[in-house]
Each structure stands twice: as C-alpha cells, then as structure tokens.
C-alpha cells in the first residue's frame, strides 16, 4: 500500500466520527440525577449478553418496589456508553403502574456498557450496569 492508499484507508476510518461519542456516561447520569449519589441494587437490567444484531435489542428493566403511594419508583432512565448519544430512554411511572417493569428494544452501535437508573419517591437513586457484546455483521447492507 502506498501513502495515497494508506490515506484513503484512513479517510474511510475517519468517517466514523459520525458515530463518535458525545460526553461521558457518568456525566450523563449525573445530569439526570441532579448530582445525587447513586447506589447499586434494587434495579435489574435484563438484556442478552451477546447480541447478534445491534439494531433491535430487547431490554427489560425491573425495579424491586412495592409501588405503593408511600413507596414507589417515579422514573427510570437508561444510558449507554458508546452510541452517538448517552441517553436511551426515560420513563415516568408511579403507584398506578402496580409493577415497576418496562421493556423496549434498543440500538447498540457496538460492544459497550449499559446502565439503568431508577429514581424512588424518597429521592434515592439505584443503578444496575451490564456489559453487552455486539456481534459485527459479516455482510453489511450496501
């Protein structure tokens, strides 16, 4: 490969910043919690550890809470480490939910860490981290 070809290859690699990260994961979580401390526990983030296609990955978040007027989850936020944007989704719920469990399908650009954060009505925040491996597609659509 001569220098020109090397540069051409480099240019292909440089297109990537369209998919580059904005801000860090911890910062995005801090912004959402308003700087409040988070503790690990009470939240369970369910997702396959090995994903065969990152375009639609089923994910379920469950929070251990009686969901009564006195003791319930008020919000759940999902964050990722390496997509172009840290936020995935934010859900608002309350005692009318009966059960603090939400499912959706998400996109994962690459192998990375996901974080679910739950906010309780007493103002505490609880988290769960999961590392997910995303398989590279062998044949990408032209």
């Amino acid at each position: 490969m001569n220098r020109r070809q090397a540069l051409a290859t480099l240019a292909v690699v440089m297109v990537r910043p369209a998919f580059a990260a904005e801000g860090d994961l911890a910062g995005a979580i801090r912004t959402w919690t308003g700087g409040a401390a988070t503790k690990e526990g009470r939240v369970k983030l369910d997702i396959a550890e090995l994903v065969d296609n990152g375009n639609a990955v089923p994910i379920t978040v469950t929070v251990d809470s009686p969901m009564t007027a006195a003791n319930h989850v008020t919000a759940i936020a999902l964050f990722n480490e390496k997509n172009p944007q840290r936020d995935i989704a934010r859900f608002q719920l309350g005692p009318r939910a009966g059960k603090a469990q939400v499912s959706t399908r998400i996109r994962l650009a690459t192998t990375q860490r996901l974080v679910a954060v739950a906010k309780m009505n007493d103002g505490s925040f609880w988290t769960h981290n999961v590392d997910v491996i995303v398989t590279l597609a062998a044949c990408i659509e032209d």
Binding site: M1, A6, T9, V12, L136, A138
Partner: peptide
C-alpha cells in the same frame, strides 16, 4: 504492520470473515 492491518480489515482483506 501494513499486512496485519489488511488482514484485520473486514472490507479490505476480509480474511477474518
């Protein structure tokens, strides 16, 4: 070194497929 990069590249070398 260039050879390694070619082998690793899934669009150029395709070797790792």
């Amino acid at each position: 070194a260039r050879g390694r990069a070619i082998v690793a590249n899934r669009q150029v070398g395709l070797c790792l497929l």
